[in-house]
Write a protein that binds this DNA or RNA. Structure first.
Lengths: 149, 149
DNA sequence: TTGACAACCATAAAATACCATAATATTATT
DNA sequence: AATAATATTATGGTATTTTATGGTTGTCAA
């Protein structure tokens, strides 16, 4: 199962927001009924994934080197920053305020499927980003975008 | 199993449409009883495939690199646009309205087999497209089109 | 005792399951 | 081979469930 599509949901005054049903389905068989969130390293948005994915990341970065400063820094960046947020009965989470601020999210947020992971964006910010990505893809491969007659 | 042939079916007022029985057979042994749909990057139509195929794509693009902007952009193009649609009891799906608009589909749609994938077209648009393709093939290779006796 | 937070209850809208039927194809029978 | 019987589709309408969202209460700790 993959995180697919983009769904916009609202934050209520208590900061709660529904995780899209399709996204909840992805972690349905997971031990942890919730998601992991952390700052994105590439964009002005929040990164999200399942606990299983986080464990894979851990396995990938873990080289058992207790003396590697680089390794320590990387783990610090990723794991100390990550929060596990469990769903309430109706499938909502409360996104920590520092993450909301980082992503510039106020009243509503966009859940963006990325396959094995997902992101949470300010809807307007994502529009800008997506247009930019499409433009870049277009510039890189014009032959795919416009077939000559 | 492959997606083969072209079948035209109707949309009802609720936007439901039967996925051709032969197409449903292709994903019969899949864990996810449904199809993945997304905008075509090359034509005015909807692209479709099985969840397995989407997972293969995911495996191919997934590199666990949290710092790769390029990878992030690629995933954004592919997965943020895709929807998983499961069959109802009679084998129907509801195609999201934005995809219908993109492909210019109103009352009926044409399922076009492409082997490992398929497409969904406005029937008239597909005719135009098909004629164009034939014309191009004709222009390119007149010698193949008219065999002398 | 106040403020943060979790558990609980409620509801409108949207999505999906359910039931029914008509059209088509497939098989069986004579 | 012709026709009857059966199964499988595609399609239409209704009922039920799920989802997203809002509000209230209870609990624990500062």
């Amino acid at each position: 199962m993959l995180f697919l599509g983009t769904i916009e949901n609202k934050l209520d005054q208590k900061g709660r927001i529904s995780v899209p049903a399709d996204f909840r389905m992805v972690v349905k068989n997971s031990t942890f009924q919730g998601v992991i969130l952390f700052h994105s390293f590439t964009n002005k948005c929040i990164e999200g994934c399942s606990m299983e994915r986080m464990e894979m990341l851990s396995d990938a970065t873990d080289n058992l080197d207790l003396f590697s400063e680089e390794n320590d820094n990387l783990n610090s960046l990723i794991f100390s920053d990550a929060r596990q947020l469990s769903f309430d009965v109706t499938g909502r989470i409360v996104i920590p305020s520092d993450l909301l601020e980082f992503a510039g999210i106020k009243n509503s947020a966009l859940f963006v499927g990325k396959g094995k992971t997902f992101q949470i964006w300010n809807p307007d910010e994502f529009n800008k980003f997506q247009n930019n990505v499409r433009k870049k893809a277009f510039d890189a491969r014009p032959s795919l975008s416009f077939k000559k007659e």
